[in-house]
Design a protein around this nucleic acid. Structure first.
Lengths: 364, 364
DNA sequence: TCGATTTGTTTATTGGTTGAATTATTTGAA
DNA sequence: TTCAAATAATTCAACCAATAAACAAATCGA
């Protein structure tokens, strides 16, 4: 069905194979040689050599001395991502802090600035103006280290439309805020604006290709990653697990409905009654697994530090309510990045965009 | 992230563009000319000509006289899918019938055989043996009409693993049935085995790219179509909406849990208490929309004839419980194919596979 | 009847991969 | 010490597929 509506020319072949080579290096634990990449991908050595030349010339890969010796033959030149290559600027605005970080192409955090302060009393323009100058500081520091930015991404606790328009951010009190227009300092960079749970999910993959990330803050959000790709839904509003009904006639929610998960497993409820929170969470997560057949669930935000208290209660509901639980169990895991997850995911999104389409960067 | 782990060569370019041209013809309401395809796809006329030649030579397209006259210039040759091209064999086994149909490349039903009879007392081998001979009859009739089959697909009311192994089909009483091995008459054809709701969803798209199809039978199943593609989940067990919890402490379900949707909106419950069924269905569907941001829901199976009774009750819950309902409403629709949906979807799956990868058929 | 117009084909060119031959660099054995 | 074997990387001719531009075909309108 999907013969994506675009024609393919030879240059698309090159673009695809450049990405293939770059991803192979990125996913490799050691520093692979051209020959290793060739046998790993199925491309010929000649082709890999040509592609690697382009990637080195474009500053995406670097060549290193061979690692250990292995038998006879000419020693291999080890290839690695260029730590000085295009980096990603990750930004986050949340209820009580602003944050920025710069992550290198290799995935290292090279800058990190967090500024605490209640954002709720501020008008969107003022909050974003403060973020803009925070971003400028991070940018300048990165430039001083010799890093060039490939783009920026901002995590927002709310519903974001495809063009960067924030439709609603209830906890910030925002409505219809045109974020890119209010960040003039970033006008020269490609800017991604996305929901915080979506971006936090990206940062929490740890090698997993298909999983659900759940973040318990004041609200509860989820990022759905299917086969390595974030699923955003038709309008970009997927993952609103906080308003999945757990008890149809239960507590009234600020959204107008009754019995939303948020009323039983929000940040405060976890602290007040972990058993109830775990049970409610388990019921909602069972629905997700029944619908999407997802095998791994990562608990982040306020859930991560309470993971040990929540685990048994959630698993009990999953076992009872997931139809296929006897055939294949669901794995529960705590997120490891803490409050930095969304900001890190934002920066990762930029870096991953470069890795997924290096040709766009090379010909920029 | 997804630079699908395979290298791309020139032949992949050709395969992709062949599919692009074929899909363009398939999705066209009139009979497009080579020039129209060129301007529609962005390929050059020369390239389209070459690709079309291959598709005509391979029996996938046919050339027709120009339709209406339009101004000056050489008249265009209209292209259309070849009605005598590779067809799909669709099969279904269900509690009280066996069915087979043959659908042409153009999407017309050319054969249709339904054999009523309770399958539950039969051993899987016996039921499938009967289906095998039914399939042979449909095949022979299709061959008599000059149709060649590109493959077959079977719809089963149960959980199907990727290799065609039916893990559980509760209403048939099946467990771990190796379907392909029990259909020797189809050994020479590629065979897809899939869940009936998944295949019924495919047949019920009606141009929609992202939607949820819900089928209310004895059990309740759902097919999730995201951007034109069926989402099957990590193990192929997605869409088990029947066991989403609606009332956590509600009626006990045969799956062992309490308050599953199936206990409130199954076939019998719809007849007994439509209002309760609609409300339960609405609660579960609201969860789907909150999680996946799906804008269109198609009600099939036993729900379709009761659509008018159910609609208001479902919509009330959706409006109340979907966080984004004020921003964008959810569209409810009744399926139109009736009990044939799964069988038709099975045949469609075969035809669509040919349309999505004509190069595979041409070089078979 | 002729020019304008549109469709479809032909041909030389270009970009990109392939496969085979070649060069480079090391280990190990005579 | 020297040379054969082995492995890595590069070079080069061949091939495949798309492109652009020229050309042939078929129709309309003046």
């Amino acid at each position: 069905m999907t013969a994506s509506r675009a024609p393919v020319r030879q240059s698309s072949v090159r673009a695809h194979n450049l990405a293939l080579v770059l991803q192979t290096v990125a996913n490799s634990t050691d520093r692979p040689s051209r020959a290793a990449i060739a046998s790993g991908t199925g491309l010929t050595r000649a082709t890999v050599s040509a592609l690697v030349d382009d990637l080195i010339a474009g500053g995406l890969l670097t060549e290193h001395d061979p690692a250990p010796r292995t038998g006879a033959g000419r020693p291999a030149a080890g290839l690695a991502l260029n730590a000085a290559g295009p980096a990603g600027l990750g930004l986050e605005i949340n209820v009580d802090y602003l944050a920025a970080c710069v992550v290198s192409l290799t995935g290292e955090v090279r800058q990190r600035i967090v500024e605490h302060g209640d954002q709720r009393p501020l008008a969107p323009a003022d909050a974003l103006s403060a973020l803009d100058s925070l971003a400028s500081r991070a940018r300048a520091a990165a430039a001083a280290e010799g890093l060039t930015l490939a783009g920026a991404a901002l995590a927002v606790p709310g519903l974001v439309a495809a063009d960067g328009l924030v439709r609603v951010a209830p906890n910030l009190g925002w409505q219809d805020v045109d974020v890119p227009a209010l960040l003039p300092g970033l006008a020269d960079l490609p800017l991604i604006v996305d929901n915080e749970a979506n971006l936090a999910a990206l940062a929490s993959a740890e090698g997993e290709r298909t999983f659900l990330y759940v973040s318990g803050e004041i609200g509860i959000g989820a990022g759905i990653v299917l086969d390595g790709e974030l699923y955003r839904g038709g309008r970009g509003w997927s993952g609103e697990i906080g308003h999945v009904t757990v008890y149809p006639d239960g507590r009234p929610c600020r959204c107008g409905a009754n019995g939303c998960l948020e009323q039983y497993a929000g940040q405060e409820q976890v602290a007040a009654d972990a058993a109830l929170a775990a049970s409610a969470l388990g019921i909602a997560l069972a629905a997700v697994v029944n619908l999407l057949d997802i095998g791994v669930i990562v608990l982040g935000g306020a859930y991560a530090p309470e993971f040990d208290q929540l685990r048994a209660g959630i698993e009990a509901e999953l076992t009872r309510r997931v139809l296929t639980s006897a055939l294949a169990p669901v794995t529960l895991r705590a997120a490891t990045l803490g409050p930095d997850a969304a900001m890190r995911g934002a920066a990762d999104a930029v870096v991953q965009a470069v890795r997924a389409d290096p040709a766009a960067w090379l010909t920029r």
